[in-house]
Design a protein around this nucleic acid. Sequence first.
DNA 1: TGCGGTAAATCAGAACGCAA
DNA 2: TTGCGTTCTGATTTACCGCA
Length: 305
Amino acid sequence: MTLTEQVTKNIISRLIKGQDYRIEVVALINAQFLQFAMDFFEKIVQAKLRNKDVIDWYKKEFLNPKLSSEEIAINSGLNKKTITNMFNSATKEIVIDASNEHYEILYNSILQLIENQSEIDLTLTIKFRGVSVELNINESLIVINTLAVKRAALRGGLWSTAGKKVEKPLMQTLCMLFDVPKENYAIHLKGAKAKQEDELDFEREIDFYLISNGQNHKCEVKLMGKGNPESADAVIARDSKVFIADKLSDLNKTQLDSLKVNWIELRSENGYQRFEKALQSLGISYNKFSGDIDNKLTEIFALIF
DNA sequence: TGCGGTAAATCAGAACGCAA
DNA sequence: TTGCGTTCTGATTTACCGCA
């Protein structure tokens, strides 16, 4: 899944201005989900027309081993990650087995449900190029379930992508906003350090470094909202010096203060300006920014992207 | 080049505690 | 009792790396 550059820019711009960035991601989830739903309905019509006298046409068409393992899992009502967690592996063979098994279970529980709630009936009519097909209640429920599972997948993926795509350019933007000299910051090049055999301190992914007096200070960006204390724990585990977040709880702040971590909460009044404090405490030279933030951001984006 | 496993990103809901 | 905020737990995905 990818994020367009424009969306990344919009998100950073919102973050710097202390606005909520979530609307950007939510809009993407909506758009992609609705598109998936329309495409899926089209495939349903075609599959049903191709298999007029096949009773379990859904299984034949949508759990077909020719499809990718992601598609098979979703169509059966399971997310691929769930299969990985269940079986400690996500090889195609395992995905196919798990999906088929799950589909049977789902199908049976739908049958049971229909039996217990016989007062309600449901027919889904899909029209495509003037041809219409009808899905009975159990077919409809299978389809609805698949849509729900797909939405979960899109949601997880897009939130994850947004977090990953934004963190480095966000740090660059902050540095450039404060005119931090180029030699005082670095984007961690993955793999470059892993090869050094004498590095006992084997590193996980680190977003960004601020450099002063020959020392590398780790920086951490997390676009976390309220209620994610374990995310803040990651900072402690990695001995970071600067922590940039969307929203921090008071406990988070107190904890970070006592650990002498410079925190920046973007979602507060002039939140990004607290970056100045971090630069001061690390002894890095900078110029305070004043002026039109939008123009400045446009300038910076032209250099970064 | 493609596949599979691991690390890391975030969200959502339940449980809990506190204040009105 | 109700409402609100915080913490905990579990859910999803992508990015990255190693290997055949």
